[in-house]
Design a protein around this nucleic acid. Structure first.
Length: 588
DNA sequence: AAGAGCCCTG
DNA sequence: CAGGGCTCTT
């Protein structure tokens, strides 16, 4: 009897299995995915909210193709007794029903069919031609019923928020009718009529029933039949639906909380600690995450709130960072992203932008009216595209730890030669430490060079909080800065000699401006993208360095093998503090 | 002796 | 940028 429907449902099962692919594009054109995707937990739930999900007219039509009969929502049962197009699929049935019974049965089948219509089937493809074949006499009536359906299909321009309630209303309506069908089954004819008020049932419990229906073969194949069974069975089904809906809603809520809110963002904000006593950080290191010898991360939550907690404070608040903060040079502050989630990269980028906002007093004056009321979310836009790159350190790339690390932690730990394609993996392990340095660490180190040419290991540890400091890591960082200095001094010597050759007579004429060639060379090296606002202090230090070289060379000191050391001594004293933002736990 | 830093090289 | 040798300082 219901073989046709069941076969159809089986087909739909396959479709829905496919539709579980979290592919928004796919969803767009796949009606079944509309029904299935909501079932996907957490991350995929975002897709539902996304405009993609309901954006296309095709999606609209697909959605409604799920329930071609639902549009027949009139309470006038007398006009509903017609064979549905679905009944034509049941050509092999040998029942000798009255036309009225056939019509009712066909309607039920049509409901089922509508619920499980295959992906990409436009409602009109399924429904209209057969209607035209079998329902000529009902043409006027259908025209009266379809508008709700077709109007929605045609209304591709309306927003998701506008459409969604309509979807829900129709889903509800559908199930009222299903209930009506089953209720009428209990009546004399054992066939549906359409007299039951929708108010009989808790509407919201069924808003997604259609979706659930298609997700659970047992419901489709078994429970479906319950609609034609005595009321106790039906009530049981309703109860099942309600139970499932409730549990699913709870699950979704929990998932969404844990996925949308970085796990420890809810932890007490510890930025005060990081800002007010940044240099104490290393003293607290041992309270933080420790990595066991086999490379597995061992997370320890400190007994006392300290740097370890601050480690998980992912987003600095600009307004608290520094009074010198002004608007970024090149990015508008309103470039906000609705959802901000922490990631390895975004953290670095936050830092990076915070640095960018670090300006000198002169710039403060100029930009004081544009002080960023920073929402740290604004930074993610630029950084989410950056993937964790293989560690820079080739030596550590050969670390045996790599092989033993939990794959889930891999992304967070930024192990060498691991290309992390999924930010989601990276984002959800805020307690993890990097075992190695990444290119983002290198970028940060370069930016730090604008403030300090000779960072102490303490400063390095403070600024690279997310790195498990080993001797190797420390020496690598030191080596980086050694290389930075090398380039810096080479440039200085080069330009000093060039100035001498040029015939610059007075040292006071030797200045470094932001438009100078020397500055451009330095900026290109340490700030290649030029997206960081180089602090004026660095420009000043560069000028001093240049003049030191100029004087030394002009005085012939360069004949001394160690003539640069005196200059180094001067320059190292010009080191300034690294801005707090570099230290406040966003070193990645 | 150990470590820091510079220099040179690839 | 990394590796290695070298010098210098502690």
């Amino acid at each position: 009897m219901y073989s046709t429907s069941n076969i159809y449902l089986d087909d739909c099962t396959a479709e829905h299995l496919h539709s579980f692919q979290p592919d928004p594009v796919h969803s767009n054109s796949d009606a079944s995915s509309i029904c299935v995707t909501p079932h996907q937990d957490g991350e995929d739930a975002k897709m539902i909210k996304g405009s993609d999900y309901y954006s296309g007219g095709e999606a609209d039509s697909s959605f409604f193709s799920c329930s071609p009969v639902e549009v027949n929502t009139s309470r006038d049962s007398s006009t509903r007794r017609h064979p549905s197009p679905a009944s034509s699929f049941c050509a092999h049935h040998d029942w000798n029903l009255s036309s009225g019974h056939q019509a009712k049965r066909a309607r039920v089948e049509n409901i089922i069919k509508g619920m499980t219509s295959s992906p990409g089937m436009h409602s009109t493809d399924v429904l209209t031609p057969q209607y035209e074949q079998t329902e000529h006499m009902k043409e006027d009536e259908r025209n009266g019923e379809l508008p709700l359906h077709q109007e929605n299909v045609a209304r591709s321009g309306i927003s998701h928020s506008q459409r969604r309630p309509q979807h829900l209303r129709q889903l509800r309506t559908r199930f009222y009718h299903v209930d009506e069908v089953t209720t009428d089954n209990n009546k004399a004819e054992k066939y549906p009529t359409w007299n039951i008020s929708p108010d009989t049932f808790p509407k919201d419990a069924f808003t997604d029933f259609d979706l659930e229906w298609q997700k659970y073969p047992s419901w489709r194949k078994g429970k479906l039949m319950n609609f034609f069974q005595p009321k106790p069975e039906r009530v049981k089904l309703m109860a099942d639906v309600l139970k499932h809906e409730l549990s699913r809603a709870v699950s979704r809520s929990v998932d969404s909380v844990f996925k949308s809110v970085p796990l420890l963002q809810t932890a007490p904000h510890n930025e005060d600690v990081g800002i007010e006593k940044p240099l104490q950080s290393s003293l607290c290191e041992d309270k933080k995450i420790r990595l066991s010898c086999d490379g597995y991360a061992k997370v320890q939550i400190p007994d006392v709130q300290s740097e370890a907690l601050s480690l998980v404070v992912q987003k600095p608040r600009l307004e608290r960072c520094d009074q010198r903060i002004v608007q970024p040079r090149s990015r508008a502050p309103h470039n906000l992203k609705p959802h901000q989630s922490f990631s390895h990269d975004s953290a670095l980028h936050d830092n990076w932008l915070l640095q960018k906002n670090h300006n000198t007093p002169r710039q403060q004056v100029l930009g004081s009216s544009e002080v960023v009321q920073a929402n740290s979310e604004m930074f993610d836009t630029q950084w989410t595209s950056v993937k964790v790159k293989p560690k820079v350190n080739s030596r550590r790339a050969r670390s045996p730890h790599t092989a033993t690390v939990d794959p889930v932690l891999h992304g967070r730990l930024c192990f060498p030669r691991v290309k992390i394609e999924s930010d989601s993996v990276v984002k959800h392990h805020p307690y993890m430490l990097n075992e190695g340095l990444t290119t983002n660490h290198l970028k940060k180190a370069k930016l730090m060079f604008f403030y300090t040419r000779y960072p102490s290991s303490l400063v390095l540890k403070t600024c690279f909080h997310d790195v498990q400091f080993t001797r190797c890591i420390t020496s690598q960082l030191i080596k980086w800065f050694s290389n930075f200095r090398e380039f810096y001094y080479i440039q200085m010597e080069k330009f000093a000699r060039h100035a001498l050759v040029e015939g610059v007579a007075d040292v006071r004429d030797l200045t470094v401006g932001r438009e100078s060639e020397l500055f451009r060379a330095l900026n290109m090296h340490y700030n290649k993208a030029s997206d960081f606002q180089v602090p004026d202090r660095f420009v000043e230090v560069a000028g001093i360095t240049l003049r030191e070289f100029y004087v030394a060379i002009s005085m012939g000191k360069d004949h001394d093998p160690s003539w640069k050391k005196a200059i180094y001594k001067v320059i190292c004293k010009l080191d300034g503090d690294v801005p707090t933002e570099f230290k406040s736990h966003q070193s990645r």
